[in-house]
Design a protein around this nucleic acid. Structure first.
Length: 318
DNA sequence: TTGTGTTTTATTGCCTCC
DNA sequence: GGAGGCAATAAAACACAA
C-alpha cells in the first residue's frame, strides 16, 4: 500500500489538543457530512487509489469500512485487540500527504475561501473529512496573513530606511544652509555697521570733509559710488586744503577701503594704514568711505558740523 | 540520543451574519 | 440559533544541532 511521507512518518500523535473532550466528541460525531459520505468513489480519488480511505491514525479505512495498517511494521500489530484499542483511544493527529497538500495549495491559490460545495468536493477528491478541509483552509489563511504581515513589515522597513536617509541628508543640508545664513547675516551686519559709521559724513553729491586739525580732506562721489577720501597729515594745513581743492593729489576714489596714500591717488600706491602711521604727520592719509548712495547724507542744516570719532581722528562734515 | 525550536493539524471560544 | 471565520492555543510531527 503506497502512502505519503507524512502519513507513514506520522504514525503516532494523538493526545493533547487533539484529544477530544466531551464537546469535541460531540463535534466529531456530528461531522459536516454523514459518515458514509466522506468516502469518495475510487475514480474521484487519486490520492487514495481504489481503496478510498479516511485517516485514523495507524489505520486507514477503505470504502468497505475495513481497517488497513499503515505500514508493514504496523501491520504486525494489527488485530482485533488493536482495533478495540484504537476505537477506545482518542483520534491520532496526522499530517496530510505531500500530494494532498499540493492539491489543497492549488485549490487555495485559486480561491482561499471555501464554499460548502467546494469543501465537500475537495473532501471527496482527497479522501479527507470536510472538516479537515475547512481546518486546513483556515490554517492556511492564518499562515497567509502572517506572511503578509512579515512582507508588509519588510516593505515598510525599507521605506522607513529610505526616508531616514533622506531626512538625515536634509538635516545636514539644513545645517549647512543655516551656517550660510549666519555668515551672510554677519556680513550684512558688518556692512550695515560700516554704513552707519559712514552715513554721518557722506553727503549727497560732492561735499567737503574737514578732518580735525591738522587733517583735512575733500570727498566726492564717483560714478561707481565709491569714495576714497584723503587726508593730508601735513603740518601745513593750508597746503592740504589747497591740495584737496585741486582734486588731484589729495582726492581719490577707489574700492571703498581705508587706505593710506603717500603722494598721489594712484591705486598702486594705496595701502592699509597702520595705527603708527598717524603719528607720522608727514604722511598722507586716505580714508575710503563706504558707497555713497543717495539719501545717505544727512547733514543737519541747523548744525552742519558733527564729529565722527574713528581711526583716531575726526571728520567734520557740512 | 536528547533537547529545543519550528511547522502542522486540530480545538476552543468568541464574534458576525443570516 | 446555527454556520462559518478568526485569534489563541495545544500538542503531535518534524528538523536539527550538540
Amino acid at each position: 500500500m503506497m502512502m505519503g511521507r507524512g502519513m507513514i512518518g506520522g504514525g503516532g500523535g494523538g493526545g493533547g489538543g487533539n484529544v477530544p473532550n466531551q464537546k469535541q466528541k460531540l463535534k466529531i460525531s456530528s461531522l459536516d457530512q454523514p459518515f458514509d459520505s466522506i468516502f469518495a468513489p475510487a475514480s474521484l480519488n487519486p490520492f487514495t487509489g481504489s481503496g478510498a480511505m479516511v485517516d485514523f491514525g495507524a489505520f486507514s479505512v477503505n470504502m468497505s469500512g475495513n481497517l488497513f495498517c499503515r505500514s508493514l511494521e504496523q501491520e504486525e500489530i494489527c488485530g482485533d485487540e488493536h482495533l478495540d484499542e484504537y476505537f477506545n483511544h482518542p483520534e491520532k493527529k496526522r499530517r496530510l500527504t505531500v500530494d494532498q497538500v499540493q492539491f489543497l495549495e492549488k485549490s487555495f491559490e485559486a480561491e482561499n475561501k471555501l464554499e460548502p460545495e467546494r469543501k465537500s468536493q475537495l473532501a471527496v477528491e482527497l479522501g479527507l473529512q470536510p472538516r479537515q478541509i475547512a481546518i486546513w483552509f483556515q490554517n492556511r489563511r492564518a499562515r497567509l496573513r502572517t506572511k503578509q504581515v512579515e512582507t508588509d513589515y519588510e516593505t515598510l522597513n525599507e521605506k522607513y530606511n529610505c526616508l531616514k536617509i533622506d531626512y538625515d541628508n536634509l538635516l545636514k543640508e539644513n545645517e549647512k544652509l543655516n551656517q550660510e545664513v549666519f555668515h551672510l547675516k554677519e556680513n550684512l551686519n558688518a556692512k550695515e555697521k560700516e554704513k552707519e559709521n559712514s552715513q554721518s559724513c557722506i553727503m549727497k553729491g560732492p561735499c567737503e570733509l574737514w578732518i580735525e586739525n591738522p587733517i583735512s580732506a575733500t570727498v566726492s562721489n564717483d560714478e561707481e559710488s565709491t569714495v576714497l577720501a584723503m587726508a593730508c597729515l601735513n603740518e601745513d594745513q593750508s597746503e592740504a586744503r589747497s591740495d584737496s581743492s585741486t582734486g588731484t593729489d589729495s582726492l581719490c576714489y577707489n574700492n571703498g577701503r581705508l587706505s593710506l596714500l603717500l603722494e598721489t591717488c594712484d591705486s598702486s600706491q594705496v595701502f592699509e594704514p597702520e595705527r603708527s602711521d598717524f603719528s607720522d604727520e608727514s604722511l598722507q592719509l586716505s580714508y575710503v568711505l563706504p558707497k555713497m548712495e543717495e539719501g545717505y547724507c544727512h547733514t543737519s542744516p541747523a548744525n552742519p558740523w558733527f564729529p565722527i570719532e574713528d581711526h583716531g581722528f575726526s571728520f567734520w562734515s557740512y
